[in-house]
Design a protein around this nucleic acid. Sequence first.
DNA 1: CTCCTTAGGTTGATGCGTCAACCAAGCCAG
DNA 2: CTGGCTTGGTTGACGCATCAACCTAAGGAG
Lengths: 163, 163
Amino acid sequence: MGKGPWLDDDEQAAWRSYLLMNKTLATHLERHLQREFGMSNSDFEILVNLSESEHGRMRAFELGRATQWEKSRMSHHLSRMEKRGLIRKEACESRYPEIVITEKGLAAIRACAPAHAARVREFFVDVLGTDRMIALGQASDEIVDTIGKHCESDCPPEVSGLG
Amino acid sequence: MGKGPWLDDDEQAAWRSYLLMNKTLATHLERHLQREFGMSNSDFEILVNLSESEHGRMRAFELGRATQWEKSRMSHHLSRMEKRGLIRKEACESRYPEIVITEKGLAAIRACAPAHAARVREFFVDVLGTDRMIALGQASDEIVDTIGKHCESDCPPEVSGLG
DNA sequence: CTCCTTAGGTTGATGCGTCAACCAAGCCAG
DNA sequence: CTGGCTTGGTTGACGCATCAACCTAAGGAG
């Protein structure tokens, strides 16, 4: 068929390699987390943030800022995690509940974090080596910044028809 | 809380930058594809493969090999795409149907591919520049290979208890 | 031929992510 | 006080991805 010359060959190759790596790595990490510990990547992300916070408790929107999730996704996922006993929603002085990591949640993250870190080391850190790893980190930041700037000018946060 | 020393600081920073870049880039690309053309990344992947194939037709398992999807995901997704008129399942000499891209599917991919490619160029190719882009492609291949080797020795393709 | 395995594919259940709609304060203008 | 806007959060519907189970035909071994 029409073989669109959408990107030239080098670009195609690099882009597709990147996409494949991405999918492969993510799938691999998530599968092990799931099979060995019954935890999803999303669970992991929430628990890491909570366990790194001052007293194992955060407001939902703080978690939202940290994870970049949409609020509805956060709400749904926290409900499911609460049902599984990994976290608890606790009323506090302010109008909104605080999200607290439970003993079970703490145990879960402590159980799986070392194995997860080991895999990241094996397939990311060690394969790249220090120099390339740091370079990739920097390049990643540049891409994020570029997209951020683009969106600023593109979609001014919902302010357009207020005159 | 317990601040697990799971990865050291440089490793953490690079890994998290990479994860954020990943999510940001994927979300950005998918959102535009979705909002401007009503197509998901998955649709795009299928249509690209079909449109690049010899006569716009492939067997489902060839698509599976190309995309690395599970067969059930493929089956589900192809059914939905057929319902939307983007592809068609056509009986052929062999026992299994061939997947054919329709006029509508062809029109859809031709409509959105340039914009998609432009975004990949803007946020990936141009930000990285040729050298870093090629280096990332190579590094990606290495990671994929490493995971591949690991899985060979780890999970010999379902051959274990056959006497 | 019969039994068994394998390959290609479908199906149903379930959990997740997104979107749009909604709700309940708090805030500020008039 | 009233009306409108913003913020933090919940809900329901829907489409998607995964898993396990299943179906069918083809290939091989006995």
